[in-house]
Design a protein around this nucleic acid. Structure first.
Length: 385
DNA sequence: ATAGGGTTATGA
DNA sequence: TCATAACCCTAT
């Protein structure tokens, strides 16, 4: 415990039995009783002032963010088959690794944090003026706000924090000087609970891939062509590649289905700028992350026989949805059923046809993976002929 | 829930 | 390369 009689208390400006901050270069000295909050000591009994602890926390937060970004970058490269293995991108991964330091190396107690903006204060420097401290606290607060603004996705859960940081977090609650931090805390905890979708993706592995595979196979068999229908080979569906439709959103970290508009062939006729529209994003997300279970819940709720038809991509232990259903041609029986359904439910010139009802009407004839929208699209095609 | 425009896989 | 059909996305 660093107690000194050489200094004056930063609060009452008197000498006596003072605690001196052990952080390198920090001249803060204070009576334990003047703290206004419990004094904090590390395992070795060294005292650290709330200010230094806060600075450490901010530094660690930044480092955690850098680490998260670096990991995200590596994931991005990992997910893109075209990029995988190339010299250039191996370099990128290495750079990402170097940029984001391993969190395990970060320890608030030994983090290379000084009490100022990089310059170390001399031990003999005059006692910090309280107003100076306040100013610096403000600046570091705004610094943290900036970080928080930037990081909508940094997954710095308090779980992985070092004991001394946890200790400080508890202290924040009581610490009057840490009031601002306290206000920001809900956001921080929100980031850890309302987690980055890209992390949720990893939870996808518990979606019982085997069961999904079985369902998939069931779909295949259930959609066997009728006698007059197209040959089985025609009905064969191909799986679209993961890389074709899935991308990691660089900002949100979500696995998005943003279509690659810039086709290498330049074939794409329309260059609709794909804005990150909220609705689109959410749909992309559910589609991309779309564990069969998620889809199941949605579909089964409206129609018990409906099945998801989601091509799945297995990557190590994880199962991803490739985001787009496999192409399934319509059988003649389905077309006939569709005609019959439209005829039955047709009202005013085939406007606003109740596709859901029509789907229910022919639920034993339509493939179980058909959706009302599929019926609508098919009818449109048939009418176009 | 549906309509309608856009995207993409597929085969000629 | 192009037409087509299936599928996707978003506005209403």
């Amino acid at each position: 415990m660093d107690r000194s009689e050489k200094h004056l208390c930063i609060k009452c400006n008197e000498g006596g039995n003072l605690l001196v901050c052990s952080e390198n270069g920090c001249p803060l000295a204070i009576h334990e009783g003047c703290m206004g909050c419990p004094a904090r000591f590390d395992d070795a009994g060294r005292f650290y002032c709330p200010y230094c602890l806060y600075k450490q926390a901010v530094a660690e937060s930044r480092q955690a963010r850098e680490y998260a970004l670096a990991r995200k970058k590596a994931l991005l490269i990992f997910m893109d088959e075209e990029m995988m293995g190339s010299e250039q991108h191996l370099e990128e991964i290495k750079r990402a690794e170097a940029d984001g330091h391993d969190l395990s190396k970060v320890s608030p107690a030994n983090a290379n944090v000084t009490c100022d903006d990089g310059k170390s204060r001399g031990k003999d420097e005059t006692i910090l003026n309280k107003s100076v401290l306040d100013l610096e606290h403000q600046s570091s607060s705004s610094e943290e706000e900036k970080i928080q603004e930037e990081e909508s996705d940094a997954s710095t859960s308090s779980k992985g924090q070092e004991p001394s940081l946890k200790m400080y977090e508890k202290e924040k609650v009581r610490n009057a000087e840490g009031k601002k931090i306290q206000e920001e805390e809900p956001e921080t905890s929100a980031t850890s609970t309302d987690r980055d979708p890209s992390l949720k993706m990893h939870e996808n592995k518990n979606c019982n891939p085997e069961e999904e595979q079985i369902q998939e196979e069931e779909c295949e068999t259930s959609s066997a062509p009728s006698a007059e229908g197209p040959s089985p080979t025609v009905r064969t569906r191909t799986k679209r590649g993961f890389k074709n439709s899935d991308q990691i959103d660089g900002d949100s970290g979500t696995v998005s289905l943003q279509r690659k508009l810039v086709k290498q062939s330049g074939k794409s006729k329309l260059t609709t700028p794909t804005v990150n529209h909220p609705r689109r994003s959410s749909r992309r997300l559910s589609s991309a992350l779309g564990s069969a279970q998620m889809l199941n819940d949605k579909v089964v709720a409206s129609r018990s026989l409906r099945q998801p038809r989601q091509p799945l991509v297995k990557l190590a232990n994880y199962t991803f949805s490739s985001g787009k259903r496999k192409r399934l041609l319509w059988t003649e029986e389905e077309e006939e059923t569709l005609k019959a359904g439209v005829q039955k439910y047709s009202t005013d010139g085939n406007k606003n046809l109740p596709w859901t009802k029509i789907l229910d009407f022919g639920q034993h004839k339509f493939d179980r993976t058909r959706t009302p929208s599929d019926l609508k699209d098919k009818w449109r095609n048939m009418m176009a002929k």
